Structures are given as structure tokens and as C-alpha cells.
Measured scan of single mutants.
Amino acid sequence: QEEEKEIKRLAKKFNASEEEARRAWKKAGGDPETAEKILKKKG
């Protein structure tokens, strides 16, 4: 599933848990760029 792959990639890229990545993904409405910004800010 595309979403799961994206979440795993985000978690790995930002050294975050999949739970954090999933939360960022949901907050971003499934937009990878926005999710990255959220995780970057958090990191």
C-alpha cells in the first residue's frame, strides 16, 4: 500500500517512529511534502 510505504520512508528519513510519521501524514492530509515539513519542525 502506497500510504504505508510513504510512512515508512518518512519515519526512516527523519529518524522518527512510524507512529509519529503516521500522525504527521494524517495531519498533512496525506500530502508527503507537508508531512515532511511537520516532521522536520518536530525533529
Score class of each variant (00 low, 15 high):
residue 1 Q to M: 14
residue 1 Q to P: 14
residue 1 Q to N: 13
residue 1 Q to S: 13
residue 1 Q to G: 12
residue 1 Q to K: 12
residue 1 Q to T: 12
residue 1 Q to I: 13
residue 2 E to N: 11
residue 2 E to F: 12
residue 2 E to M: 10
residue 2 E to D: 14
residue 2 E to K: 08
residue 2 E to Y: 11
residue 2 E to Q: 10
residue 3 E to A: 11
residue 3 E to F: 11
residue 3 E to L: 08
residue 3 E to I: 12
residue 3 E to Y: 12
residue 3 E to N: 09
residue 3 E to R: 07
residue 4 E to W: 09
residue 4 E to A: 09
residue 4 E to Y: 09
residue 4 E to C: 10
residue 4 E to Q: 08
residue 4 E to F: 07
residue 4 E to G: 06
residue 4 E to T: 07
residue 5 K to T: 11
residue 5 K to A: 12
residue 5 K to W: 12
residue 5 K to N: 13
residue 5 K to R: 13
residue 5 K to D: 12
residue 5 K to Q: 12
residue 5 K to L: 14
residue 5 K to Y: 12
residue 5 K to V: 11
residue 6 E to C: 09
residue 6 E to F: 11
residue 6 E to P: 03
residue 6 E to I: 12
residue 6 E to D: 05
residue 6 E to H: 10
residue 6 E to Y: 12
residue 6 E to T: 08
residue 6 E to N: 08
residue 6 E to G: 05
residue 6 E to A: 12
residue 7 I to V: 08
residue 7 I to S: 01
residue 7 I to M: 04
residue 7 I to T: 02
residue 7 I to H: 02
residue 7 I to Q: 02
residue 7 I to N: 01
residue 7 I to L: 04
residue 7 I to E: 01
residue 7 I to G: 01
residue 7 I to Y: 03
residue 7 I to P: 01
residue 7 I to W: 07
residue 8 K to F: 08
residue 8 K to S: 09
residue 8 K to Q: 12
residue 8 K to P: 03
residue 8 K to L: 12
residue 8 K to C: 11
residue 8 K to R: 12
residue 8 K to T: 08
residue 8 K to A: 10
residue 8 K to M: 13
residue 8 K to W: 08
residue 8 K to V: 08
residue 8 K to G: 05
residue 9 R to D: 05
residue 9 R to A: 09
residue 9 R to K: 09
residue 9 R to E: 06
residue 9 R to H: 05
residue 9 R to F: 06
residue 9 R to L: 07
residue 9 R to Y: 06
residue 9 R to V: 05
residue 9 R to W: 06
residue 9 R to S: 05
residue 9 R to T: 05
residue 10 L to N: 00
residue 10 L to G: 00
residue 10 L to M: 05
residue 10 L to K: 00
residue 10 L to D: 00
residue 10 L to H: 00
residue 10 L to Q: 01
residue 10 L to F: 03
residue 11 A to L: 04
residue 11 A to K: 04
residue 11 A to H: 02
residue 11 A to C: 11
residue 11 A to V: 07
residue 11 A to E: 03
residue 11 A to Y: 02
residue 11 A to I: 08
residue 11 A to R: 06
residue 12 K to D: 07
residue 12 K to H: 09
residue 12 K to N: 09
residue 12 K to I: 11
residue 12 K to V: 10
residue 13 K to L: 11
residue 13 K to C: 07
residue 13 K to V: 06
residue 13 K to S: 04
residue 13 K to Y: 06
residue 13 K to I: 07
residue 13 K to A: 07
residue 13 K to E: 06
residue 13 K to R: 08
residue 14 F to W: 11
residue 14 F to N: 03
residue 14 F to K: 01
residue 14 F to H: 06
residue 14 F to G: 02
residue 14 F to Q: 02
residue 14 F to L: 05
residue 14 F to C: 14
residue 14 F to R: 02
residue 14 F to T: 03
residue 14 F to M: 09
residue 14 F to Y: 15
residue 14 F to E: 02
residue 15 N to D: 07
residue 15 N to L: 06
residue 15 N to Q: 09
residue 15 N to Y: 06
residue 15 N to W: 06
residue 15 N to A: 08
residue 15 N to G: 11
residue 15 N to H: 12
residue 15 N to S: 08
residue 16 A to P: 00
residue 16 A to L: 13
residue 16 A to S: 08
residue 16 A to I: 15
residue 16 A to F: 07
residue 16 A to G: 02
residue 16 A to Y: 04
residue 17 S to K: 04
residue 17 S to I: 03
residue 17 S to L: 04
residue 17 S to D: 05
residue 17 S to R: 04
residue 17 S to A: 04
residue 17 S to N: 05
residue 17 S to Q: 03
residue 17 S to M: 04
residue 18 E to S: 04
residue 18 E to H: 07
residue 18 E to C: 11
residue 18 E to R: 05
residue 18 E to K: 05
residue 18 E to D: 08
residue 18 E to V: 13
residue 18 E to F: 14
residue 18 E to Q: 08
residue 18 E to Y: 15
residue 19 E to V: 07
residue 19 E to H: 06
residue 19 E to W: 09
residue 19 E to L: 06
residue 19 E to I: 06
residue 19 E to Q: 08
residue 19 E to P: 04
residue 20 E to Y: 04
residue 20 E to N: 04
residue 20 E to L: 06
residue 20 E to T: 07
residue 20 E to R: 05
residue 20 E to W: 06
residue 20 E to F: 04
residue 20 E to S: 07
residue 20 E to G: 02
residue 20 E to P: 00
residue 21 A to Q: 01
residue 21 A to Y: 01
residue 21 A to V: 13
residue 21 A to S: 04
residue 21 A to L: 02
residue 21 A to D: 00
residue 21 A to H: 00
residue 21 A to C: 11
residue 21 A to E: 00
residue 21 A to I: 06
residue 21 A to F: 02
residue 22 R to C: 09
residue 22 R to M: 07
residue 22 R to A: 07
residue 22 R to D: 03
residue 22 R to K: 08
residue 22 R to S: 05
residue 22 R to G: 03
residue 22 R to T: 06
residue 22 R to F: 07
residue 23 R to L: 13
residue 23 R to W: 15
residue 23 R to G: 07
residue 23 R to Q: 13
residue 23 R to M: 13
residue 23 R to Y: 14
residue 23 R to V: 09
residue 23 R to S: 10
residue 23 R to N: 13
residue 24 A to F: 02
residue 24 A to R: 01
residue 24 A to S: 03
residue 24 A to Q: 02
residue 24 A to D: 00
residue 24 A to K: 01
residue 24 A to N: 00
residue 24 A to W: 02
residue 24 A to T: 02
residue 25 W to D: 00
residue 25 W to I: 05
residue 25 W to V: 03
residue 25 W to P: 01
residue 25 W to S: 02
residue 26 K to N: 13
residue 26 K to H: 13
residue 26 K to S: 09
residue 26 K to P: 01
residue 26 K to G: 09
residue 26 K to M: 15
residue 26 K to T: 11
residue 26 K to W: 13
residue 26 K to D: 13
residue 26 K to Q: 15
residue 26 K to E: 15
residue 27 K to L: 15
residue 27 K to T: 12
residue 27 K to C: 15
residue 27 K to E: 15
residue 27 K to A: 14
residue 27 K to H: 10
residue 27 K to V: 10
residue 27 K to I: 14
residue 27 K to W: 12
residue 27 K to M: 14
residue 27 K to F: 10
residue 28 A to G: 05
residue 28 A to R: 01
residue 28 A to E: 00
residue 28 A to L: 00
residue 28 A to M: 00
residue 28 A to N: 02
residue 28 A to P: 00
residue 28 A to C: 04
residue 28 A to T: 02
residue 28 A to F: 01
residue 29 G to Q: 10
residue 29 G to A: 09
residue 29 G to T: 04
residue 29 G to S: 06
residue 29 G to L: 10
residue 29 G to M: 09
residue 29 G to E: 09
residue 29 G to C: 15
residue 30 G to F: 04
residue 30 G to I: 01
residue 30 G to W: 03
residue 30 G to E: 03
residue 30 G to L: 03
residue 30 G to D: 02
residue 30 G to K: 06
residue 30 G to H: 05
residue 30 G to S: 04
residue 30 G to R: 05
residue 31 D to I: 08
residue 31 D to N: 11
residue 31 D to E: 05
residue 31 D to M: 04
residue 31 D to R: 05
residue 31 D to Y: 03
residue 31 D to V: 08
residue 31 D to L: 04
residue 31 D to F: 03
residue 31 D to T: 03
residue 31 D to K: 05
residue 31 D to S: 06
residue 31 D to W: 03
residue 32 P to E: 05
residue 32 P to I: 14
residue 32 P to Q: 08
residue 32 P to C: 11
residue 32 P to D: 03
residue 32 P to K: 10
residue 32 P to F: 11
residue 32 P to A: 11
residue 32 P to G: 05
residue 33 E to H: 10
residue 33 E to I: 13
residue 33 E to Y: 13
residue 33 E to V: 12
residue 33 E to T: 09
residue 33 E to D: 10
residue 33 E to C: 14
residue 33 E to P: 06
residue 33 E to G: 08
residue 34 T to P: 01
residue 34 T to S: 08
residue 34 T to A: 13
residue 34 T to K: 15
residue 34 T to Y: 10
residue 34 T to I: 15
residue 34 T to M: 15
residue 34 T to N: 07
residue 35 A to Y: 03
residue 35 A to D: 00
residue 35 A to F: 04
residue 35 A to S: 03
residue 35 A to H: 00
residue 35 A to G: 00
residue 35 A to E: 00
residue 35 A to Q: 01
residue 35 A to P: 00
residue 36 E to R: 05
residue 36 E to C: 07
residue 36 E to N: 03
residue 36 E to Q: 05
residue 36 E to L: 04
residue 36 E to V: 05
residue 36 E to D: 04
residue 36 E to T: 05
residue 36 E to A: 13
residue 37 K to M: 12
residue 37 K to H: 09
residue 37 K to R: 12
residue 37 K to V: 07
residue 37 K to N: 11
residue 37 K to T: 08
residue 37 K to G: 07
residue 37 K to S: 09
residue 37 K to E: 12
residue 38 I to F: 09
residue 38 I to G: 02
residue 38 I to R: 02
residue 38 I to V: 04
residue 38 I to Y: 10
residue 38 I to E: 05
residue 38 I to Q: 03
residue 38 I to N: 03
residue 39 L to D: 00
residue 39 L to H: 00
residue 39 L to T: 01
residue 39 L to A: 00
residue 39 L to W: 01
residue 39 L to G: 00
residue 39 L to E: 00
residue 39 L to N: 00
residue 40 K to Y: 12
residue 40 K to A: 15
residue 40 K to Q: 14
residue 40 K to R: 14
residue 40 K to T: 11
residue 40 K to W: 13
residue 40 K to C: 11
residue 40 K to P: 02
residue 40 K to V: 08
residue 41 K to N: 14
residue 41 K to H: 14
residue 41 K to C: 13
residue 41 K to W: 15
residue 41 K to Q: 13
residue 41 K to G: 14
residue 41 K to V: 10
residue 41 K to M: 15
residue 41 K to L: 15
residue 41 K to R: 13
residue 41 K to F: 15
residue 41 K to S: 13
residue 41 K to P: 07
residue 41 K to D: 14
residue 42 K to I: 14
residue 42 K to M: 15
residue 42 K to N: 13
residue 42 K to V: 13
residue 42 K to G: 14
residue 42 K to C: 14
residue 42 K to F: 14
residue 42 K to S: 15
residue 42 K to T: 13
residue 42 K to W: 15
residue 43 G to Q: 14
residue 43 G to E: 11
residue 43 G to H: 14
residue 43 G to F: 15
residue 43 G to T: 11
residue 43 G to N: 13
residue 43 G to L: 15
residue 43 G to P: 11
